[in-house]
Amino acid sequence: MEKAKRQGTTRLRADARRNRDLIVAAARRLLVEQGVDVPLEEVARRAGVGIGTLYRRFPDRDALLRAVGEDTLRRLVDLAETAWREEPDAWHALCRFLRGCAELHMGVLSAKLEPHLHQRLRAGHDLHEMRQQVTDAVLRMTERAQADGALRRDIGPGDIALLMTTHVYSPPGTPGEPAMARVMEIMLAGLRAGSGPALPGTPRTDDDLRRYIAVEQPPTD
């Protein structure tokens, strides 16, 4: 009897987690398509759950948007770590990371989430740690790729941060993914060492990267 009860509880927890993941995934897609004002009923419908299930997981719109922001940041950390672990060198890791940022629609999500939840998305120790992980990964890939002679020297880590949120407009009714993929390859070609004349201005620095990803500098003595 007790064993059956435990199994039932485990199954309920798994179902609850599955529903939560479905809701967050649906919300992320709809944010890209329609923006932060998308009806929550539409989110529930796209997730395949009832509106009551959505509200049990997320009592209001801000709670759902914050969950999307946190989930996206976790995906970004995983993307950076996987690229570094699986690619043969820093250049290929950096390219895979930037392509993944485009596939995650980082540009659209940042533009739509940040103005709405600017302070909330920057609060919390867990979010700070994830942001720091992304910052460390970008610094590592940038520095190593330049040391290997693959990445041009007039690119700074802050420049890579800007490319992480690149977004390409596509007219209504036309698929945006092929256009974004093509633009990303154009940008990656331009990052290659010896790919063209010197860039205007100066490279954006480590500090620019930290400000862009919202990681506070440690206090100096």
Rank of each mutant, 00 (worst) to 15 (best):
M1W: 05
M1V: 10
R11S: 11
L12S: 08
R13P: 00
L22W: 09
V24T: 05
A27D: 10
A27K: 04
A27L: 11
L30F: 10
L30I: 07
E33I: 03
G35T: 04
L40F: 12
E42S: 14
V43I: 14
V49A: 09
A63E: 14
R66Q: 14
A67Q: 14
G69E: 05
E70T: 15
D71H: 05
L73S: 03
R75S: 01
L76D: 02
A80Y: 02
P88E: 07
L94E: 01
F97L: 07
H105Q: 11
H105I: 01
G107A: 04
V108M: 05
A111T: 07
K112M: 02
L113Y: 05
E114P: 00
H118V: 03
Q119C: 02
G124T: 10
D136P: 00
A137D: 07
E143V: 00
R144S: 11
Q146N: 10
A147M: 11
G156L: 07
G156N: 08
A161T: 00
L162P: 02
T166R: 05
T174Q: 12
P175L: 05
P178W: 12
M180L: 12
R182M: 08
E185F: 08
E185A: 12
I186P: 00
A189N: 13
A193W: 07
G196C: 09
G201Q: 13
T202E: 15
T205S: 15
R210N: 06
R211T: 07
R211F: 03
P219H: 07
P219I: 06
